[in-house]
Nucleic acid binder design. Structure first.
Lengths: 242, 242
DNA sequence: TGCCACTGTGTATGCCGCAAGCAGTTATTA
DNA sequence: TAATAACTGCTTGCGGCATACACAGTGGCA
């Protein structure tokens, strides 16, 4: 069993006792917050070891006293972007209402920090805030007959879907109310120039019909559609276990 | 309406007529295939404009005659990694069986190219093979009462979930049969060192129970779990529309 | 109390990657 | 036939990540 990575030691307050040497000039939270501020203002590509170091009054290489790599820095950033979950579940609410709230809160956090969905994904959650959100998701499913594996599996599916929804909506410029005639036209309009009816009959039909039914607010309506589908799947599973 | 990006023109065979100048020395497929071969052999980080150029007998900057950026090169790589869908749906099969096959085939492709799930996602599908897979997914849902938006939404949810499943399983070293006592122990064992029962009661319970019920083959069993949930959701939607 | 190992910061440096710009050659169009 | 667009190689600039080391500060131990 190897030692905890440095950044996790720091984030969790789990440093070994009796560290010698000068006291650190900054906390890992300060460093992460500086990186988040840069990403918020100038986008993810503006976050470099150098820009972050400058923002906290260090020189570049001192950051490696807190994180071993830039990848670890981005993990810290994501944890800070998430922050602790502060919402409350209504009293006596159904699991469905609670999970819906959980998913909406996550999407809100992600939307406030669009750069967070562009970060490379580095594995399962390990940081304090990320795990706090997992805990809140499990709390929402408390009292259901699902096994633990089924609970974790369901939360993962919703989380992954939600991230992708934010990312795709952002990339397509479809966050917020939009002209129904313009919704998805950038994607469909583009593929219309290359696909032929012989090879892509279903796609052409689906695309045209989607334009007819175009959402007034793609982000919100597709959120309901996709989350509804996932919740229905969970409901079916619960019904089978009852 | 702007011009099609160069790489899409090339991939779709949609170049304007009458291009002057020397004939290109390579096709975009050849360049993409060289990049895929490098990624297969040495991993994604070994793919640089330089290494790809060398592999096809060019110098670095000539690649920009085919793609405008490295990002476009990775889109070409992904399309080639997918290849055209070659599977067949059984005659008279249910939508559920067809979608299951579709999802499994995608996962197989992704598993054969684990680097493909690490690529940054650049928006909705635009390339020939990627769109062919979408077409096959729509074909699997033909005959169901779902609207086109619901169909696209369902396919997207499954695709996204499948990619994440491959990525996470690969990152956690959980592809193929494994010692049940070791499954997820790397993740849970790690968080056990930092989480406390007061703050994370549900997580600790879920983790311990998951270890008790540990899968013999995490990848396969979690695939069934997660896909089952999504399919149940689609089934509920279909039942409501019937 | 003094010595020494460990730790925090700055500095110097190396290597690599992406891509703008230009020169020379090739093939099509006017 | 001349002009022009397109293909390739070459040059170059800039920025980023991270190894290694010097110096100063702090705690553990004899």
């Amino acid at each position: 069993m190897t030692e905890l990575p440095r950044y996790l030691q720091l984030l969790w307050g789990r440093e070994p006792e009796g560290r010698r040497g000068p006291k650190p000039g900054r906390t890992i939270e300060e460093i992460g917050a500086a990186a988040v501020a840069i990403a918020d203002r100038d986008g993810l590509e503006a976050v470099s070891m150098k820009s972050v170091a400058q923002a906290v009054g260090f020189t570049t290489m001192s950051l490696y006293r807190y994180v071993d790599s830039k990848e670890e820095l981005t993990a810290v950033m994501l944890d800070l972007a998430y922050g602790p979950p502060t919402f409350r579940y209504p009293r006596r609410s159904t699991w469905r209402k609670r999970i819906t709230l959980w998913a909406k809160e996550i999407a809100t956090v992600r939307l406030a920090r669009p750069w967070s969905v562009e970060l490379a994904q580095g594995g399962p959650p390990l940081t304090p805030n990320a795990l706090s959100w997992t805990e809140r998701g499990l709390e929402a499913l408390a009292g259901t007959p699902l096994t633990s594996q089924e609970r974790l599996s369901a939360l993962l599916a919703i989380d992954v879907w939600g991230q992708n929804h934010v990312r795709l909506s952002t990339q397509m410029g479809l966050v917020g109310r939009s002209d129904p005639d313009r919704v998805e036209v950038s994607w469909f309009g583009l593929i219309l120039r290359v696909v032929d009816k012989e090879r892509f009959p279903h796609l052409l039909t689906a695309g045209a019909e989607s334009l007819d039914d175009a959402d007034e607010d793609f982000f919100e309506e597709e959120f309901e559609r996709g989350l509804g589908l996932l919740l229905d799947g969970i409901a079916a599973l619960i019904a089978r276990q009852s």
